[in-house]
Structure formats: C-alpha cells, structure tokens
C-alpha cells in the first residue's frame, strides 16, 4: 500500500530537483521549469494531505487553485524572460546584475 510518506518523499524529491535547477541552471527557462517542479511538489503534498479532509476535499481544491495560479505566473514569468532577453540579449541569470547596489 502506498502510504502518505511515499507521496511526501516524491514531493521532497521533486522540490529538491526544483531547487537544484533554480540555483544551478544557466538558462532562465530552465530556472522557470525548476520553479514549476517545486510548485508541483507543493501541489503533490497538498493532494497527499487532502486525505485528512475527506469532507470538503480541501487538498484537491487547493491543488487545482494552485495549478491555475501557477499557469498564470508562468505566463507572466515567460513574458518577463522575453523582455529580459530583449533588453540584455541573454537569459543567463548570472549576467543580469542590475539588482546589485
């Protein structure tokens, strides 16, 4: 039988993969994918914990809500990346240092 722990493990694995991608990839798209992975890890956890709310299925509802939001943010993020590319001719996050003081 698949237990809650297994779901959480998979979620953690996904989350770590996501983080790794975020901090190490040289391409903003890949970073964005990492972010999606982390989101999905979170959604997986929501669904897994949903078993404690069988009456309202709050977990699944939140998951759906999060998926919708994720899609929206991804769209915005892609738009930003596009703009960044237009301005800097690169989407390597190491090259973009304008946040520096």
């Amino acid at each position: 039988m698949i237990t809650l722990t297994d779901f959480l493990l998979v979620g953690a694995l996904l989350f770590c993969t996501g983080i790794y991608m975020i901090v190490s990839k040289r391409n903003s798209i890949q970073v964005l994918i990492g972010i999606e992975l982390m989101l999905n890890a979170a959604i997986l956890n929501l669904v897994a914990f949903g078993k404690y709310d069988k009456l309202n299925n709050g977990g699944q509802v939140f998951a759906l809500f999060a998926i919708v939001l994720a899609a929206a943010t991804t769209a915005v993020a892609l738009a930003i990346i596009l703009n960044v590319y237009r301005r800097y001719k690169t989407i390597d996050p190491d090259e973009i240092k304008n946040l520096r003081d």
């Binding site: 975020i22 996050p93 240092k97 304008n98 946040l99």
Partner: peptide, 17 residues
C-alpha cells in the same frame, strides 16, 4: 556584506537556502 548583494538572483536564493 556587499558580496551577498551581487545582483544575481540565483545567488540570493542560494544564500537564503
């Protein structure tokens, strides 16, 4: 301190982590 403020988002995240 300013080394942590190099403008690289990934670096920020990394440090946060």
């Amino acid at each position: 301190a300013r080394k942590f403020q190099n403008g690289k988002v990934q670096y920020y995240l990394y440090s946060m982590l």
